[in-house]
Write a protein that binds this DNA or RNA. Structure first.
Lengths: 155, 155
DNA sequence: CCTTGACCTTCCCACCGTGGGAAACTTCAC
DNA sequence: GTGAAGTTTCCCACGGTGGGAAGGTCAAGG
């Protein structure tokens, strides 16, 4: 089975299959004499495993752990559960941040007339000119912001 | 005002202030003779505007648009609202994906005993060995996946 | 046999937003 | 004048994904 077929069968692009091999998420694939990667049904099952884990939002590092637990017949399910629970908390955090953004923006959009006039509560709030107390003027509230902000971006 | 003070006053790191200038989100700052960037109260207001927009999850590109609408006294609030509405939809999409992940994972975690035994519905589901019909075996369902997947990752 | 087209290989580059750090310089207070 | 804290630019990293170039391979059809 060439990489393209494995890609179709697993739902992971050829690009990503090679990438996963590169970051050691997968062991180096077998090669034909000419250098083509060869995959077995078993390899495809690993790929599917990875895809499903990605679909649940697990990071590469977490998937590495999941895979090794999967391979280990003597794993205690406790470990799997713990790993999943940690990820669940992460998801929850993101969800909450996102939900907060949504509510705030929803409120603003709702308040904006959306006509030909220039007055706009959305801009006013962003500018800090709004009468909205929830401004959180940074000077006072230097919150952590140490990590990743939510990926709310678009375009 | 040096960049550090502007950073403190706006809640944006010096790194990011320079970056925003680099990607033309901000006009090039004034400089002292020795090359230090100088900021006015007005500049700080722009920075705060940006920070608040980022806090609502707007992308750099969207903020560029928001800034120019803000500067334009004759903007129709319709335009601002439209921009915000588009972003709102994006947020909503992400929220839904995230929510779906969370529910699915929550279910699995709930089902897993989390003891010393190796049986684990989480792994079984990822492996596709689970009796869970919601498997979505890629071979049949080559969905778009053309863009960014949700940033559910951790670690 | 040779061409053509579909596949494969590696390698580098892009996105988004953010931070880290090096090497050099400036400013200020002591 | 010396040292500390600020600033400058530049390059590199992360996560995960895709794009594309330049080249090799394979099978089918003329």
């Amino acid at each position: 089975m060439n990489i393209g077929d494995a890609a179709k069968a697993s739902g992971i692009s050829t690009k990503m299959i090679r990438h996963y091999e590169g970051v050691q998420l997968l062991p180096p694939a077998q090669r034909t004499e000419s250098g083509y990667r060869q995959y077995t049904e078993n390899d495809v099952r690993s790929l599917q495993f990875i895809r499903r884990a990605r679909d649940l939002g697990f990071s590469i590092d977490e998937i590495r752990d999941l895979l090794s637990l999967w391979q280990d017949r003597n794993r205690p399910s406790r470990q799997v559960k713990a790993l999943a629970a940690v990820h669940l908390e992460t998801l929850d955090k993101r969800l909450q941040e996102l939900q907060a953004m949504k509510s705030a923006l929803e409120h603003l959009v709702h308040c904006c007339q959306g006509n030909d006039r220039p007055d706009c509560p959305i801009l006013e709030t962003l500018a800090g000119t709004g009468n909205d107390a929830s401004d959180a003027d940074a000077s006072s509230a230097q919150r952590h912001r140490h990590g990743h902000r939510i990926t709310g971006g678009a375009a």
